[in-house]
Design a protein around this nucleic acid. Structure first.
Lengths: 128, 128
DNA sequence: TTGAAGGTACTACTAGTGTAGGAGGGTGTC
DNA sequence: GACACCCTCCTACACTAGTAGTACCTTCAA
C-alpha cells in the first residue's frame, strides 16, 4: 500500500506518536497546546481515521483504553509531504529556496548543514 | 485581504494565467495535458471560484467569451504555499533539506545558487 | 454490587475541493 | 431569420478534513 496522504491535524497526531512512542488518545490529546486544543473526541476521530489509513495501529489495551502505535515512519510521511509539495513547483527546488531566503527562514547555517549532508550523501553513493 | 489559499488544481489554472497572460477558459483548459485533462466545465468552475477568492478578474469580453487575468502574483501565491508547507515542520527548513538531498532533488548547483541568493539578500539588508 | 469516571463507537454536520451535466444565451453563417 | 456552436451560469454530487455530541461500555473502588 502506498504512503497515505496525511492532513495537518493528522500530522500533529502522528507527531505525538513519533515523539512520545505508544500513546493513548488521552495522551495525544494532551500533547496539543491548551490554547486551540481540539476536543478529545476530535482527536479520537482522527486517530480512528489514521487507523483506517493504516498509519497507526492498536498496540495494546490498558484498562479500558487503547494504546496506539505509529506504523508509518516520520521519515516516510515527511518524504511524502515533501514530494507532494515540490510537485507544485514541477520538482524544482530553486524557487522554493528563493522564498526561504527572502523570508529569512533559511540562513547561512542551514546552507552549511546542507553542504555537509550533500557530502555525506555523495560519499555513501560513491564509496571511494 | 490576505493571500487566499489555492488548491492544486487552482494553482495549475493560475499557472496558465501566469505563463500565458490573459486567457479565456478555453485556453486555460487547453493548457492541461490531454491525458487526464479535466472537463471544460470543471475548469470553468475553478476559474469562477478563483474569481470569488479574488485571485483572478475579468479582463474583457471577446465575442461571448470572457478573458481572465491573474490579480494574484505568482510570487505571492508561492510564498503563501511555502509558508503553509513549512508550518508542518514548525518552520524548520533542516528536515526538508535532508529529504531533498536524500532524494537527489537538491544538488551542489542548488546549494551554490542558494549561497548567491543569500549573499544578495544580506547585502540588500545591510548595504555595505 | 453498584455507581462514577473515563473510555470507545457511532453519528452528524460544515466547508472545501474536484468533478461535471444541463439550461439558456449570444453570434456568425448560410 | 434560423440553426449550430460555443460560452456562461447554475446546480449537483461525492469525498475529505475538521469538529464534536451522544449513547453505550468497562473498570475500579467503596
Amino acid at each position: 500500500m502506498p504512503i497515505p496522504k496525511l492532513s495537518k491535524l493528522e500530522m500533529q497526531i502522528m507527531d505525538a506518536l513519533w515523539t512520545k512512542g505508544e500513546c493513548s488518545v488521552r495522551e495525544i490529546h494532551e500533547e496539543f497546546p491548551e490554547k486551540g486544543r481540539p476536543a478529545y473526541t476530535t482527536v479520537q476521530t482522527m486517530v480512528n481515521r489514521l487507523e483506517a489509513k493504516g498509519a497507526v495501529e492498536r498496540a495494546k489495551k490498558i484498562g479500558n483504553s487503547l494504546i496506539f502505535r505509529a506504523t508509518l515512519s516520520r521519515t516516510a510521511a515527511h518524504r511524502r509531504l515533501v514530494d507532494e509539495f515540490f510537485s507544485f513547483f514541477d520538482g524544482r527546488v530553486q524557487p522554493v529556496i528563493a522564498h526561504l531566503i527572502q523570508s529569512g527562514k533559511m540562513t547561512g547555517e542551514d546552507i552549511k548543514e546542507a553542504q555537509k549532508l550533500l557530502k555525506e550523501h555523495t560519499e555513501k553513493r560513491e564509496p571511494r
